[in-house]
Design a binder for these strands. Structure first.
Lengths: 211, 211
DNA sequence: TTACATACCAAGCGCTTGCTTGGTAGTGTA
DNA sequence: TACACTACCAAGCAAGCGCTTGGTATGTAA
């Protein structure tokens, strides 16, 4: 049996939510991500988080020095997790257009899929971090952004779109991040079709029907 | 002289910021919009707002019953103001593509121009409103959205783009609202060029060079 | 057995918060 | 002169907040 989990519902699947593991620390992070998304950082009290995890509010501070450190940890974990996932998804393709589609699909999946709470926190609770913490997280995020810029620059050099790749990335960020307000994975629109539609905003109709 | 404003710096220009007038109530709203954008609704205290206006914190409640009512008023005012402005901008054009450009330009101007504080609040502090207030504001917002949907539907019927007009509107909303995080009106990129670039995401390159 | 670390509880401190209260000064108007 | 209305002040209350404190139970290893 090894290290069995006591009083669990028996499900072996899904040891992580939002990219967090099942340690006490991970459980706090996952609950925090959920609550931060639902109510915002400021309206979420440490008592709320503690209640969700099933411990006393004071015990939170055994794992994190301050409430802001919880937010920072959520942000760092989700950036790390999704950078790695996006890198892997991209590596499966050769053609820049297909790489772009992998990036778009991966980013949407991060935003509306299993890391949606934490991704939402990344966008909406960003300013709750101190300036120092913002810079540190931004530095981490740069690796992620470089994946995008490399791919977009390739496409641009190949003449697949005309406009500035930097601005284009910002327009894409807008389109994808806004999906968290309206897109539901089990609705009428398939996530792949949405990704295709966004890819078309970049390279036009020439990307259709390939593969 | 009529109704002169006492103790003003003498400037006749710009009687409104964020679409709010210069009444005591309007001054509270304008200060609140600025602070809500800068620090978020929850981190802005009524004492902060009062200090900005130059009155005591308790006096705020002579003008608004609760702090949430201030947020709601900011939201309502900015929706009303920009709906009217957008309608006027649209009415100056006949061709759907030009109407679309007027909408895009108007929305960006609202987001990064004189109503930027209030527009930012609209996006980021939305969830701080009670569900009831959210519905009421949403109903107001629907008039605004209808301007977009009518224009996009026309373009769609004329075959100027293929994809679903409803989804297209959501992608545009993402692109425009995200500009508040990166676009600066006096930077290298002209606001008109940005608008054109976004229009191109919708109707492709066929919109270029007209007018 | 001793020693130390992890994970937690129960209680509560000090501060900030939204909001209330009771009152005052200035203005309009009949 | 009397009344009403708007705009505000000064003081402070009750509740909720992040975080601290001092302690206990359990596991591990010398």
């Amino acid at each position: 049996m090894g290290k069995s989990m006591s009083q669990d519902s028996g499900a072996v699947q899904a040891p992580m939510v939002n990219g967090m593991d099942d340690s006490p620390r991970g459980r706090v992070l996952s609950a925090a991500a959920r609550l931060f998304r639902e109510k915002g950082f400021d309206r979420t009290t440490v008592r709320d988080i503690a209640r969700e995890v099933g411990i006393q509010s004071g015990s939170i501070f055994h794992h994190f020095p301050t409430k802001e450190d919880i937010l920072y940890a959520v942000v760092v974990e989700v950036i790390r997790f999704n950078t790695e996932r996006l890198r892997a998804a991209m590596a499966e393709h050769e053609a820049p257009v297909e790489k772009l589609r992998a990036l778009v699909l991966g980013e949407i999946e991060a935003i509306v899929g299993d890391t949606r709470e934490a991704m939402s926190v990344l966008v909406y609770e960003w300013r709750c971090l101190s300036p120092d913490r913002q810079s540190e997280a931004l530095a981490l995020r740069e690796v992620y952004e470089q994946l995008w810029l490399d791919t977009l620059s390739s496409l641009h050099e190949q003449g697949l779109f005309r406009d500035d790749p930097f601005i284009m990335r910002r327009l894409i960020t807008g389109m994808t991040s806004w999906t968290n307000t309206w897109f539901h994975p089990d609705g009428n629109l398939a996530i792949g079709d949405l990704a295709d539609m966004i890819v078309r905003r970049v390279v036009g109709e020439q990307a259709d029907g390939n593969g």
